[in-house]
């Protein structure tokens, strides 16, 4: 257990810590806030934390951006290429996709919020919940199917 509190361990894993902090922040906002827009923001923070996580795991110590070195004739410098240490580009590429997905999700969520605002006149979850509970109660009242009949 002790090694988790050693400074070296902490600094070596600082990106994980940040990722976790960010992730929990995002999740907390999603759970805690009743404002629908804030929830979406929380969701974004949550997703961004994952992007960071992916980007960070692609990092190779002393690695550089994965771009082939050019010689003076703008050809790939084969000799130099052998000596350069690259970061892993694959997670970055993957996360590009995830970012696009994230944007789509956000925009769809916001579009839904607009529609919700139009039909419920509020974007506060508590209020919406009350309205919906009332609707359910009214339904059950209107379409009452006697419990006596059911059992």
């Amino acid at each position: 257990m002790g090694k988790f509190f050693e400074l070296q361990f902490l600094t070596g894993h600082i990106h994980y810590l940040l990722f976790i902090v960010l992730m929990m922040t995002g999740l907390f906002i999603v759970v805690d806030k009743t404002n629908l827009v804030k929830k979406i923001i929380g969701l974004n923070i949550f997703q961004v934390s994952v992007f960071m996580f992916y980007v960070s795991i692609g990092k190779v110590t002393d690695g550089t951006a994965p771009i082939f070195p050019m010689d003076s004739n703008y050809h790939v410098d084969q000799a130099a290429m052998q000596t350069i240490l690259y970061s892993n580009p694959l997670p970055h590429v993957l996360i590009l996709t995830a970012i696009v997905v994230g944007i789509a999700t956000t925009s769809l969520g916001l579009a839904l919020i607009v529609r919700i605002r139009e039909s419920f006149n509020t974007i506060d979850e508590e209020d919406i919940l009350q309205i919906e509970q009332k609707m359910t109660r009214d339904d059950n009242q209107k379409y009452k199917y006697l419990l006596r009949d059911m059992l």
Binding site: L112, R115, I116, S119, F120, E132, M135
Partner: peptide, 8 residues
């Protein structure tokens, strides 16, 4: 309209 919140 509850479909909206369901979707959300």
């Amino acid at each position: 309209r509850r479909a909206l919140t369901a979707a959300y």
